[in-house]
Design a binder for these strands. Structure first.
Lengths: 204, 204
DNA sequence: GGCCATCCGTAATGCCAGTTACGGATTCGG
DNA sequence: CCGAATCCGTAACTGGCATTACGGATGGCC
């Protein structure tokens, strides 16, 4: 089997794994259940991923890649940074609260070894953070936003955008917000970021 | 065994359970491990709590009670509501990110039945929400804060205070913030809430 | 075509955890 | 004091899961 065929087969397997994970949760996402859903054998999965943790590592990485591409695609459609941020905010919120992301975060919370958390942290540093921070810096360069510390500005924006929604999704307290809810929350977050940046006492 | 003795014994058992949960995580907090730590027998635990989920239900409830009492004690020491809020903010943030709260939230994330999530939600409705909302309403009554919707004001305050800290704690991305960090974050959250309430465009 | 590597479907192995059961010790109530 | 209930420490039972193994089918290479 050449690399391309194997890549396609792995995608099939990993999409099957997401389905099982979202339907049955981490406890129900046994290697047997995933193998059955993917019509693959245990042996193949262990040969290709090493062990169960290795398989979940790949699930985290693939999802992060998908998130990054979705955000980059949305950002590429807009020229001014604040317009891009206004456009990408709802998308980002929807992705953060999506059943797949929630299921992966739940797996990390349940993972005794802490490895999935590491994988999620690493993926986040290459995904959401830099993209949004770049937009914030460009807006500052154009004099449209004022802040001293880009990291703090990014953190404030995410607090206003998502707040504790991810937490409540992961614990299972709320359903995913709808598209309208994501839009209005993102709009309000941007307005509030703008207002707080304008005042030296509250500026990040 | 009379009720009072049994109550004291149950507290011992539940404190032992917290220790095991915080040390070993949900996967490691087996009924056997908890029984050993508490020097109790399986049979007693099953007689008193029904099953493992029942035991964890009690852990959630006991922690919520402790949180409520800690907040009420802190609030009772202050007279004006904004001063009370300034005093209770750091405490609240420390409690939300405390290893015990994190361990219980992790258990809820890992719990396939969703029952612990329900217990946590129920506890939250009787704990943090009403206490803080009461302070916000009193501040509004004194003309010190302006908002249209108390629920939205409460949500904004919590977003500014805790943001995604709980989420990152539960997933295992960050250690608990120190006391100084809780204080400065709580102070900034209150200043930002004040600023956003003063502007009709950003007011909750 | 033949040989080898790999994948699939299935079975087997070993370990673990939730739960129940048991004998002896302790406590409680009459 | 005696009998019953309950707790403690320990063992047993059952089922499930991660992982490994196996026979047959498939695909690739010479």
């Amino acid at each position: 089997m050449d690399d391309e065929r194997r890549g396609r087969r792995q995608e099939q397997i990993e999409l099957a794994a997401y389905r099982v994970l979202e339907r049955k949760g981490f406890a129900g996402a046994t290697v047997q259940a995933i193998a059955r859903e993917a019509r693959a054998s245990n042996e193949t999965l262990y040969n290709w991923y090493g062990d169960k943790t290795g398989l979940f590592h790949s699930l985290v990485a693939r999802n992060a890649q998908a998130v990054r591409e979705a955000l980059q695609t949305r950002i590429a459609l807009q020229a001014p940074p604040l317009e891009a941020l206004a456009a990408v905010g709802p998308d980002l919120l929807a992705l953060l609260t999506h059943p797949r992301a929630v299921a992966l975060n739940r797996a990390a919370a349940a993972d005794p070894g802490g490895e999935l958390a590491q994988a999620i942290a690493q993926a986040g540093r290459q995904t959401v953070g830099p993209l949004i921070a770049q937009l914030l810096l460009e807006a500052r360069n154009r004099g449209e936003l004022d802040f001293d510390d880009a990291e703090a500005a990014l953190a404030l924006y995410l607090d206003l955008l998502a707040g504790d929604l991810q937490h409540r999704r992961v614990i299972g307290l709320i359903p995913a917000p709808g598209a309208q809810s994501c839009r209005s929350r993102a709009t309000l977050a941007l307005a509030r970021l703008h207002a707080l940046c304008a005042d030296p006492a509250t500026r990040p």
